[in-house]
Simulated scan of single mutants.
Amino acid sequence: MNELTQIEKTTAKDWATDQEVRWCPGCGDYAVLKAVQRTMPDLGVAREKTVFVSGIGCSSRFPYYMETYGFHTIHGRAPAVATGIKLANPELDVWIITGDGDALSIGGNHTMHVLRRNLDCQILLFNNEIYGLTKGQYSPTSRPGTRSPSTPFGSVDRPARPCAFALGAGARFVARGIDVNKNLPDVLKAAHAHRGAAFVEIFQNCVVYNDDVFAPFTAREVASEMQLWLKPGEKMLFADGTKGIALDHDTLSLRVVAGDDPAVLTHDPANRMLAHLLVEMPGQGFPVALGVLYDDPAPTFEAAVLEQNHTVAAGKKADLQALVSKGQSWMVEKEPRAE
């Protein structure tokens, strides 16, 4: 049995600190925090072997509220710190908490590399399509027309798609969830079960600067029609099973069909091409794909580094003095004191 599972049972309260949670009333971050705290007892991990690492932004206060080890680092650099933690102690369970601005703007390069390297960690990207902490500027994921202090006439930028970015960077696990949805803990559990970099985009509502931006698919009255929750080995059905997703073989694109159509696709999370199609699924008449979009494990970065170190060190004896004396070296002799 892995050492991480040899622990006593915990509850959600055991994972919560005594710190005052300081987000705006109604912020979606509260729901994500509770979902994570409820999920942790089911993962079979120890608090003293768990680390939450964050960058800068509203979501990055997260480590203060988890009764674990944690690092509140600098803007966009959480993946770099997390990599150092995992290499120093691969037994640690590492979570990266970030936002759309933190991870995809100044931190885009770091996010790309932690994904392509496949570090064993969970990356939770809170996407509210706005810079909340710095008072509502448009972010890399803000939609065209977004009015903000930095784009008072409406943004003309083409937004980044976090999951498309992750797939393009070589991520082996890509998923989506919604801050207040009951299925979020299941997505978190699937991410944790994956060995390697598990990327989870969480649609998170910013009640102050971008309220209800996701309402077209999260509002209760349209949820069934606009949400496609994916489950491995099950048909891609939505709208209470009356509609499904099929593949148009002529155009290699997805189409909406009746739920009883034999062409309805069965979800295979190891199918990378299908994951790309689901991420890029057009909005008009199509639902938003949620849950685990892609899951196809590969060897992890830290495992490769440790194996390489072990191979290189095999049969060698550590000799610090020999290392220091190697190459050009000299001895500084003490000059005799003049009488």
Rank of each mutant, 00 (worst) to 15 (best):
Met1Gln: 12
Gln6Ala: 14
Leu290His: 07
Gly108Phe: 06
Thr17Ser: 10
Glu221Met: 01
Gln321Asp: 15
Gly315Asn: 11
Lys317Cys: 15
Pro140Tyr: 12
Tyr64Asp: 07
Ala270Gln: 14
Met281Trp: 05
Glu67Pro: 00
Thr300Ile: 12
Gly26Ile: 09
Thr73Asp: 01
Gly145Asp: 11
Thr251Leu: 12
Asp179Glu: 04
Thr68Ile: 00
Gly28Met: 11
Ala338Asp: 08
Phe286Gly: 01
Asp268His: 10
Ile96Lys: 00
Ala166Asn: 00
Gly291Met: 05
Lys49Pro: 10
Asp295Glu: 11
Leu290Asp: 01
Gly55Cys: 03
Phe286Trp: 02
Leu124Thr: 10
Val114Asn: 01
Thr134Cys: 06
Val81Asp: 05
Ala12Tyr: 11
Leu306Asp: 12
Asp240Gln: 09
Val264Leu: 10
Leu92Gly: 02
Leu320Trp: 11
Asp42Lys: 06
Met281Arg: 04
Lys9Met: 09
Phe199Lys: 01
Lys182Asn: 15
Gln19Lys: 14
Thr68Cys: 04
Ala160Asp: 03
Pro152Cys: 14
Gly136Val: 02
Asn118Tyr: 00
Gly70Ala: 07
Val45Ile: 15
His194Glu: 00
Gly170Trp: 05
Leu4Pro: 08
Gln19Asp: 13
Tyr294Glu: 05
Gly28Asp: 10
Arg337Asn: 08
Gly177Ile: 06
Ala190Leu: 00
Ile56Ala: 02
Trp330His: 09
His192Leu: 05
Glu335Leu: 15
Ala78Asn: 03
Gly99Phe: 04
Val187Pro: 02
Ser329Lys: 10
His75Cys: 08
Ala88Trp: 07
Asp102Ala: 07
Leu254Cys: 14
Asp93Lys: 11
Pro287Trp: 01
Met40Lys: 02
Pro282Met: 14
Leu115Phe: 03
Arg158Glu: 09
Asn210Thr: 05
Met236Arg: 02
Trp15Leu: 10
Pro162Leu: 15
Ser105Ile: 11
Arg47Phe: 01
Ala197Glu: 00
Asp100Arg: 01
Leu184Gln: 06
Asp260Cys: 13
Asp179Tyr: 05
Glu302Thr: 09
Ala88Glu: 07
Thr111Trp: 08
Leu277Asn: 06
Ala193Ser: 12
Met66Arg: 04
Asp268Val: 08
Gly291Asp: 03
Asp296Glu: 09
Phe214Tyr: 15
Pro152Ser: 12
Glu3Asn: 13
Asn205Met: 06
Gly170Leu: 07
Asp248Ser: 14
Thr11Asn: 08
Trp15Phe: 12
Asn2Met: 13
Ile74Cys: 06
Val174Cys: 08
Asn181Ile: 04
Met236Ala: 04
Glu225Arg: 13
Gly76Gln: 05
Thr146Pro: 06
Ala164Leu: 15
Asn309Leu: 10
Glu67Trp: 03
Leu293Pro: 00
Thr300Asp: 09
Arg61Ile: 13
Gly283Gln: 12
Ala313Val: 13
Gly70Arg: 05
Gln227Leu: 09
Glu234Asn: 10
Arg220Glu: 12
Leu184Trp: 06
Leu184Phe: 10
Ala191Glu: 02
Val174Trp: 02
Arg158Ile: 13
Gln321Cys: 14
Thr251Ala: 13
Ala190Arg: 02
Met112Gln: 09
Glu339Gln: 11
Val51Gly: 01
Asn210Gly: 09
Pro159Lys: 08
Asp186Thr: 15
Met40Tyr: 06
Gln204Tyr: 03
Phe238Ile: 13
Met66Cys: 12
Arg116Gln: 06
Trp229Pro: 01
Ser142Thr: 08
Ser253Met: 15
Ala215Gly: 05
Tyr131Phe: 07
Ser224Gln: 06
Val53Ile: 14
Ser150Val: 10
Trp95Ser: 01
Ala314Tyr: 13
